[in-house]
Amino acid sequence: MTTVAPTLEAPRAGRWTAFGVVSIALLVATQAFAFVSSPPDENMGQLEKILYVHVPAAWVMFVCFAIVLVYSLLFLWKGREEDDLVAAAAAEAGAVFNGLTLILGMIWGKPAWGVWWVWDARLTSTLVLFLVFVGYLALRAFVEDPQRRGQWSAAVGILGALNVPIVWMSVTWWRTLHQMPSSMQSMAKIYWLGMFANFGAMLLVMAYFIRRRYEAAAVARAAEHAAQAAALGGLD
């Protein structure tokens, strides 16, 4: 069992903190912009404003799971422990945004459709995706050996990502209560703009989350290595 200590580069003090502050501030700004600039929808009224949190959260969730897929494959290919830690950080962030998407969808569904929840394909498959990645995180919590944890969770992450096309295509494959994706034609420009601005800002927040979770995991691993070395009367 050969595991390499994560070679955590020392981040320059404040560099990522500045990134986090900027991305949070940007999200506040884009939300304020969308909130103020968008006129009420002709059917939805003010409810249209939920668009700017629900849809970006869903898209960011997809990005997170794409990162899990890519870094899990990278880890199995190259065996670098850092890749495993990035995949785990992305899975956790993905689960957070997945949960957020579900909650916001329910808050929107009640006034817009008349129900909190229906068992249609889009809603059900999104909930299932959430449960898949809860399982991923549980697996990591139950396995101590880093090599085993890495390879197992990479396999679970890759297989879990195979469910993403179902969620994405559910509204096209099935006739659902959830509407089809909007397009440039079916949505006024000002709503479209607000949605993309919020998606961009939320993407930065996601990047900050993943970075911080990765850092915490890498430092913890480095501490484990140092403790092992000290116990063996090593070089420390």
Binding site: T124, S125, V128, L129, L131, V132, V134, G135, A138, L139, F142, V143, W152, A155, V156, L159, G160, N163, I166
Partner: peptide
């Protein structure tokens, strides 16, 4: 999934937790 779950600490809970959501499709 049993190849992993059966060799982990929490065998009884881990297999259904991993398997059931994946089996939904």
């Amino acid at each position: 999934y049993a190849a992993m779950a059966s060799r982990s600490r929490a065998r009884e809970v881990l297999l259904p937790l991993l398997l059931f959501p994946m089996l939904v499709p």
